[in-house]
Amino acid sequence: MPDFPFIFDTMGKLLAALPTTLELFILSISVGGVLACFITWARISPYKLLSLPARGYIFVFRGSPLLIQMFLVYYGLGQFAVVRHSIFWPVLREPFVCAVLGLALCTAGYTAEILRGGLIAVPAQQIEAARACGMSGLLLLRRVIAPIAIRQALPAYSTEIILMMKSTALASLVTVWEVTGVAQRIISQTYRAMDVFLCAAAIYLVLNFVLVKLTGGLEYYLTPHLRARPTSLSAGLRPLPPPAAGDASHG
């Protein structure tokens, strides 16, 4: 017979830690995403001076465990007087900041590879066609290359952010009390591993479900050209205006 009072109590404690998990998640994928753009840019550069370090970065951060990266940031940085005396120290001594930094550095490596995969998948003929229209540089990137690459990379990226959601659990090992950390504390106090596990698992599964729906929706929104032709206007998410009206509005 499940012990409902205990389960409700546990659920309450775990949900109280949910904001921390979400903050870790959102901050780390945002910072990691920006970082990944720079790394991808360097990685596909024809200059060895740029592409080699990027290649090294990706190799190191994808090839070693996230925990060791996070400990390196949390314990390793503070070892150096230069860091301790710098203006960043008040921020860098915070476990939360270290956790976000560790997560972001790691996901940047994975995301960079995913973005590169998306870029490689952009058909050369379509870039050629854009050049033939006189596009180049940033305009070409913004109008043609990036939209196609992002659509190509989206499925892999949605897998990556679910992995990141799970990875936020490691923050508890540098004393940031997010959901898994709180769960561990309750387990070691009560020894009711299964009940606590099920509560925490339920939270993560709901989070994953929401993420899957969000990225799935985004993918659907971004790829109208891959969908079956809607049989009626109401069938599509974003029904196309009738041709005449469409022409008029763009004209």
Binding site: I162, K166, S167, T168, A169, L170, S172, L173, T180, A183, Q184, I187, S188, Y191, A193, M194, V196, F197, A200, A201, Y204, L205, N208
Partner: peptide
Amino acid sequence: TTVFRGVPELLVIYVVYFGGST
């Protein structure tokens, strides 16, 4: 597959270690 691919690895380690000990 949904549960064990969707739940943090650390959580699985805790449940096996503490649950196993119990």
